[in-house]
């Protein structure tokens, strides 16, 4: 079936199976920045934004996003670089597999909640697993990014 949606503000039209998930659709169209860590709605690596909200793309049927706006990390390159700066400052970056999901979640957090509390930040990022870092460094990096004007 043909599904039309906005990929980083560009209207695209992909021919997909009715049971195809968004992570699969995007990767098969060359958007390899979408990382699939568990493919079962848990680890958060595949997180991207649909209508500005972070969702796990391994669990979104592509058919369900007709006419919606999808943001991958390609759509927030400058913000991703700023987030990367703070991750590096805190020593929070390692293998990078979860980082793209973090970039999108953290960007969305900054857009959604002004001056979030630590509890709100943790609540917002807890659905993104990371096995490399000590997690605290990530949290500190994210806090520094959120403070940026």
């Amino acid at each position: 079936m043909l599904v039309k949606f906005y990929l980083n503000d560009t209207l695209v039209s992909y021919d997909v199976r009715p049971d195809e998930y968004l992570s699969e659709t995007l990767r098969s169209h060359g958007i390899k920045s979408v990382k699939v860590g568990c493919n079962e709605s848990t680890c958060g690596s595949c997180t991207l934004l649909v209508e500005g909200k972070p969702v796990m793309s391994c669990s979104v049927l592509t058919a369900s996003i007709e006419n919606k706006h999808v943001t991958t990390v390609e759509g927030i390159q400058e913000e991703a670089a700023k987030i990367a700066y703070h991750f590096a400052e805190e020593g929070a970056d390692q293998c990078g597999f979860c980082n793209v999901g973090y970039a999108l979640v953290v960007y969305s957090l900054k857009k959604t909640i002004k001056n979030p509390t630590d509890e709100q930040i943790v609540d917002y990022i807890v659905g993104n697993l990371c096995r490399c870092s000590g997690l605290q460094s990530q949290l500190n990096a994210i806090k520094a990014y959120l403070k940026e004007e």
Partner: peptide, 9 residues
């Protein structure tokens, strides 16, 4: 329940 990226769905 899980994380925000889950609860949005």
């Amino acid at each position: 329940v899980m994380g925000v990226n889950f609860r949005n769905l």
